[in-house]
Design a protein around this nucleic acid. Structure first.
Length: 510
RNA sequence: GUCGGGUUCGUCUAAAUGGAUUAGGACAUCACCCUUUCACGGUGAAAACAGGAGUUCAAUUCUCCUACCCGAUACCA
């Protein structure tokens, strides 16, 4: 690897919300840059004004910010190679396109949409090896290769729309090395004369991308595998511009697939798959349709990043929980796999659980309090913290807390029928009453004292633990779930426990 | 169709440079233990080298073929 400074870029187009595959691309770029003390650039590729979506750019920024992925330069903060939005660089590209015309690597083309369509149909019915605008048919089309200079100039001067196409060399082998894929060879005869400059005055992705990467001194292009097929064109463009020795190194990442393995994850999948595909909630400005986000679903950004990092990469050790700093330390493109990976929602939950149980009760309390507030429940941090300590092991998300702990804040209004059938016997009322009087007599309502009370009731009544604990849980919680009964009683306090026992006794009938 | 990429348990994946592995781990599944609840946790079980040729003393690892999957084939990125 060369000694030159590492500079990478993340270059989304603002055509909608960033999905998890996009976030992963940004993440890998970030990890690589940080690992090599390099810089990370955020460039907005908005060369297609038809597909522009309001709010998409802010969404990208907010998402990456939530993930903890930071940029050194970019649209939002400027930098020495700005502007970082391609629409603001519009004037720049035409000159580069014309340069290629002068050098004979590109040409003007005046063909209309209809002409192009009939060409395609013709080639398809002929079952031609190459069904696109290429060296095989370019001499039959209306372009500056078939027209003389005056004719071309006349058309341009009179305002006839034109595009600039790359003149793909014939039957030449293009070789390149991809950090992830290794050596790839493609024959130019299978490639077409891609449009570099559109009739609306904007460059296409291919031109803008190469020009900007060169101008912004990008050293490594890390992007999705869907770009691999156009890499030969890009390599040829670097050569045509005479920038071959400045060409970045390429790494094409495997795609993120849907859980069923059919196709790459795309923005249109929304919530259909039963889990978010977006980092943040997204409201489609056109349809008003909402798509859920990982953030709103209760994922911690650290967990989200960890999950994404492991989709297609792994450190080669058995460690699975990595902080961002640890990821930076351990990351390398060489350990990125070649095959696409499916997103597994189940494992994602597990990751979140790992981060959840690592957090302190105090921190979780601060996250839980707003949820309680929404339910008009006001409790001290101390009380909530004790509850959190009791339930966090059994939750994947903070949003799971309520159903794990509602009974600490309100008495049960229903009793699980199955549990009644299982645990409520003829003598249950008698046993509960016995415990009730012990409970009423307790001065200090502590775990130890409660345990003693329980034991003495069991001795007096000559009965088993289950005869008391099951009904007790039922009247306190309403179901057969939750932390230990004694822990619950200790937190609930004497008065509340006694009340619940009384209402339970009068409400539960066999 | 054409071109390119890919293929280890259901899923994510590990196993320097071909050589011993019961092909390892994690998630999910199942069983048992713990807990007289539900989870968590612990122990264990089941579970994979796509198929076929070849090279080699030896192939999951190299080559070729087939199958399947993915991507690209736009004046979209």
């Amino acid at each position: 690897m060369s000694q030159k400074e590492v500079r990478v870029r993340f270059a989304p187009s603002p055509t909608g919300p960033l999905h998890i595959g996009g976030v992963r691309t940004a993440l890998y770029n970030y990890l690589f840059a940080k690992k090599h003390n390099g810089s990370m650039v955020l460039r907005i590729e908005d060369t297609d004004q038809n597909r522009f979506v309001q709010g998409a750019e802010d969404y990208v920024l907010e998402s990456l910010n939530w993930c903890g992925i930071e940029f050194d330069e970019g649209v939002h903060k400027g930098g020495p190679y700005g502007p970082y939005k391609q629409s603001e660089r519009k004037e720049l590209y035409k000159g580069y396109a014309e340069k290629l015309i002068e050098s004979g690597d590109a040409y003007y083309a005046f063909d209309t949409t209809e002409e192009l369509e009939s060409l395609r149909k013709k080639l398809e019915t002929k079952k031609a090896a190459n069904t696109s605008y290429s060296s095989f048919c370019r001499m039959e089309m209306v372009n500056s290769l078939t027209l003389n200079d005056q004719e071309v100039q006349l058309k341009i001067d009179s305002g006839v729309p034109y595009v600039i196409r790359f003149k793909m060399p014939e039957n030449k082998e293009v070789r390149f090395t991809d950090i992830i894929r290794g050596d790839v060879v493609v024959n130019t005869s299978t490639l077409d004369d891609k449009v570099l400059f559109k009739s609306d005055g904007m460059p296409t992705y291919h031109l803008a991308n190469i020009v900007d990467d060169y101008l912004m001194k990008i050293s490594h292009v890390i992007r999705g595998e869907e770009w691999l097929p156009s890499l030969p064109l890009h390599v040829l463009l670097y050569k045509a511009f005479g920038w071959e020795n400045k060409m970045p190194q390429f790494a094409h990442m495997p795609l993120t697939l849907k859980p069923d393995g059919k196709g790459k994850l795309s923005k249109r999948d929304g919530d259909r798959l039963g889990f978010p595909v977006f980092p943040l909630e997204w409201k489609n400005p056109q349809s008003g349709e909402m798509s859920s986000g990982f953030r709103e679903s209760g994922y911690f950004p650290e967990a989200f990043i960890n999950i994404l990092a492991f989709l297609g990469w792994n450190p080669g050790t058995e460690q699975e929980i990595f902080s961002m700093d640890e990821l930076i330390q351990a990351f390398s493109l060489e350990r990125v796999g070649k095959a696409g990976s499916r997103f597994d929602p189940e494992k994602a939950k597990w990751y979140n659980h790992q981060y959840l149980i690592k957090k302190s009760n105090e921190e979780l309390t601060q996250l839980y309090q707003p949820i309680l507030k929404e339910k008009d429940i006001v409790c001290s941090d101390e009380y909530v913290s004790s509850i959190v300590g009791l339930i966090k092991e059994r939750a994947n998300f903070v949003t799971d807390f309520w159903e794990q702990s509602f009974f600490f804040f309100e008495a049960p209004v229903e009793y699980d029928a199955k549990m009644i059938k299982k645990g409520w016997k003829e003598n249950t009322t008698e046993i509960l009453n016995a415990f009730l009087s012990k409970s009423e007599g307790l001065e200090k309502y502590t775990f130890n004292n409660l345990e003693i009370a329980v034991k003495s009731v069991l001795e007096e009544k000559e009965t088993g633990m289950g005869q008391l604990m099951m009904p007790l849980r039922l009247v306190l919680v309403g179901s057969g779930k939750g932390p230990g009964v004694i822990e619950i009683m200790e937190l609930l306090g004497k008065e509340e426990v006694n009340n619940r026992i009384r209402t339970g006794i009068s409400n539960i009938k066999i």
